[in-house]
Every structure is written in structure tokens, then in C-alpha cells.
Nucleic acid binder design. Sequence first.
DNA 1: CACACCGAAACATCCGAGGTCTTCTGCAGG
DNA 2: CCTGCAGAAGACCTCGGATGTTTCGGTGTG
Lengths: 234, 234
Amino acid sequence: MPVTDVAIDKIKDMIISGELAPGDRLPKEAELAQRLGLSRSSLREAVKALCLIRVLDVRQGDGTYVTSLEPNLLLDAMTFVVDFHRDDTVLDFLAVRRILEPAATAMAALHMSDEDIAELGAMLGELEDAPTVEALVANDLQFHRKIADGSGNPVLCSLLDSLSGPTTRARVWRGLTQEGAVAKTREQHTAIYEAIAAHEPELARSWATVHVAGVEQWLRNALGSADEDAPAAS
Amino acid sequence: MPVTDVAIDKIKDMIISGELAPGDRLPKEAELAQRLGLSRSSLREAVKALCLIRVLDVRQGDGTYVTSLEPNLLLDAMTFVVDFHRDDTVLDFLAVRRILEPAATAMAALHMSDEDIAELGAMLGELEDAPTVEALVANDLQFHRKIADGSGNPVLCSLLDSLSGPTTRARVWRGLTQEGAVAKTREQHTAIYEAIAAHEPELARSWATVHVAGVEQWLRNALGSADEDAPAAS
DNA sequence: CACACCGAAACATCCGAGGTCTTCTGCAGG
DNA sequence: CCTGCAGAAGACCTCGGATGTTTCGGTGTG
């Protein structure tokens, strides 16, 4: 096994064992390199890798620190991973979201504070009558994130956030806008909001199920017709 | 933004845009470095980072390749991330699993082939009467993975696999064995298997719900009593 | 007390030199 | 013609040092 991979494991162990706590600063490059028995170049590769998944945070001129290691931070890195998936796996991701979103919405109906519910309602009115695709995506993302956050489970929130990442969402919307489904989506968002505001978890769950299933159906149609347009492709 | 991060994005874009397809080989280090306008050292940091999340695969003496980019491979990297979480967030992860597992089990009851079901049944008898903790964990992991795989959704399967990673699972089992709940777990596994074999999705879903909820309850008690043992800690 | 300057500390980047591993090639033998 | 074994080439691995950039903290002045 390459020394760099060994270094990654060593640093990982140092964090898991508690030798390095969240927020702690690592020894300087030269020092840590000597301690782990490798060159600075190789150590830097290890640090960079751990940096990509948000475990470490390097600040030039200052030092290298362990991040807070909170679920939202670490799962954030999954967004990066999801970006790599092509259209043919989008439906699989959406299927998972179809499982999680209703559950999160039901939990939100039980746990969200009045203040958060008010903020959620405010989002409904923020869209213009003829919004751009970018505005639609941003509003949709914000709406569902607020609900996921309201579930009270940071892991669930981050996971949904990643699954519904910008890339996937943008593709979905591209399909939707072409069929004028904006109005129906807005109606469903309103229904979900009202169910949460009334603290009716089962109603909220049902509306969320309907909502995601609808998105899935539309996307399936969009991908199907795309296949018809270019059936021999790839 | 550091040149290394730019390089990561460049390579990412090359893959997403299709310039580099899964399985393709990257230009050699020196060549790619010149093309991206940086040194080999910095490029190696970028490659190493993308390697950690299983996007690239470097083979010494051969070259650097793009992986298959299949969901299971990319989500595999999440196991690495989950390893960093401490006990206080285990319940959040388990709550998500509580949502996904019943759904996956229900899907498995609909989709699993007779052959796969037979393999699943075989796992039930593989445990000895007084198994070691390691054997328990391995068998449990294998059983649930087989079901997740039977859902037919690779994303769902990989996600469950990561959430129920070795670390989390081991901790759970450590709590369970101390209270002699092995027999009950085995009964529930058998019930889940029989529901899947009978192709009864709702029954399978219910047993899975009961199973995970039971694990969650036991874990909650275990963590609770641990707190009582050392209430002032941290 | 507030602000600007300066130097130390730490990371960022680059370069070039060996080392090691894998693969392919060419040749001899069956 | 097929097989098997050096040998060479290609590509990544590791290292160490030199130089640039950024940040932090102390210092001195108004």
C-alpha cells in the first residue's frame, strides 16, 4: 500500500481515537511528515484527499485544522459524488428520495417551530409569475431543504440535500418546464406547507409522496421521450 | 482558489462532459500537468483526492483510469465518511436507516428472484449457537445487504450499506450482546425472510420496521445507561 | 486606544532526481 | 505455431529542497 494511503489511515485513526478532536490543529507539515515517516509531498497528498471530503481544513499562512466533523459537513461531500452520475441513474436517486422525502416531511410536521413554518410559507410567495429556470430550481431546493431541516435529523437533512443536488434538480426541472407543470408543483408545495402548518404528519407525508411521485413520473416520461428522439444513441 | 482545487474541478468537468468516459485512461502525469498548467506535485494531490472518493483509479506502472462511476462504487466512499462519526450521531444515522430499510425490504419482497431468496434463507442457518461478535456482525451485515441488493435499486443498496457500516454495526452489536437479544434478532430475521419468500411486501415492510425499531430502542437504552455510568463526561 | 507596519510561521507551488512496478516486446525453445 | 522467459520501456511513487504567498501577532506611532 502506498505511503500516502497509510498516512490517510493514520490521520483518520488519530481523529477517530480522539487524539485529534474537532477544531484541533495538526502539527505543521514538516513535523507531521517526519512523525508519520514520509515526505512532505506525500503527506500533502493525504491532507488534500481528506480535505476534499471535508475532514480537514487547511488555511494558508495559518495551519491545518480538523473540521467540526458534523454530519452536514461530511455528507456535503456526497454532493460532489452525486455530480458524477449520468441520466441513467437519476431515477435510482429519485427513488431513494421518494422514500426519504415523505418521511422527512412527516417528521417536519411534528417538529417544526411556528417561526420556521412561517419562513416556509414565505417561500411560497417569493416566486414571480414567470420565473426563470434558475429561480425555480433555487426556490424548490430552498423549500425542500427547509422541510428536511425541520425533520430535526441532520443526517436526513444532509442526505436529502445531496440527493436532490443542483445537477439532478436542474435536469428534472428542465424536463418539467417543457411540459408546463410549474403550476401543479406550486399547488403541491402549498398543500405540503399547509399540512405542516396544521401539524398533520400523515397528511404531510401523503402530499410529499404525491409530489415526489409526480416528479418521478414526469421525469420518466421526459427520459422516455428523449429515448424516442434518439433511440439508437449510446 | 488553489491550483490543486482548480485541477480537481477541471478533471471533474472532463469526466462529466464526457471527454473522459468511465474506464478511460488519463494522459500521463507530466502531460496532464502541462495541459492543466500546473506542476506534477500539485496534479498528484488532485488525483489522490479524486482517488479517495473512487472517481479515479491509479495503477502503478500502468496509468490512471476513470472508474466505472457506478453508484455502488461512489457511494462506497461514504463508508469512509461515516467512520468519522461519534456515538452521539449514531442514532441519527439509525433513524435514516429506519426509514430506508423497511422500504428496501418491501421492494425486495416484490423483486427478489427465487434463487436470491434461497441464498437469503441459507444465511439464516449459517450462525452457530454461540457465535462470536464478529460472526454476528458479519452475518447481520450480509443478511441486510442481500435484501438491499434485492430491492433492485443500486443507489438504495449502497446507501444502506454505508449507513450500516461496520463501525456503526459493531457498536450496535456490542450493546445488544450484552443484553442477550441475539435470539430475538434471529427470530426477526427469519420472519423477514419468510415474508420476502412469500412475496408479501407489506408484511416484509412491517417486520423490517419492527426489527430496526427494536435495534434503535436497544441502542437508545444502551447509550442511556452508558450516560448513567458516566453522566459528567464531556 | 486605534491603526499601520513588520517579521515570523505555515502553507502553496514548483522542480528534478532516483526508485519501483507493470506491461509489452522480441527471441529462443518446444 | 504456440509457449515462456529475459529485457526494455513506460508510468506512477517517493523524496528533498528552494521559492512564493498568506496569515497572524507583536510593535511602535499618532
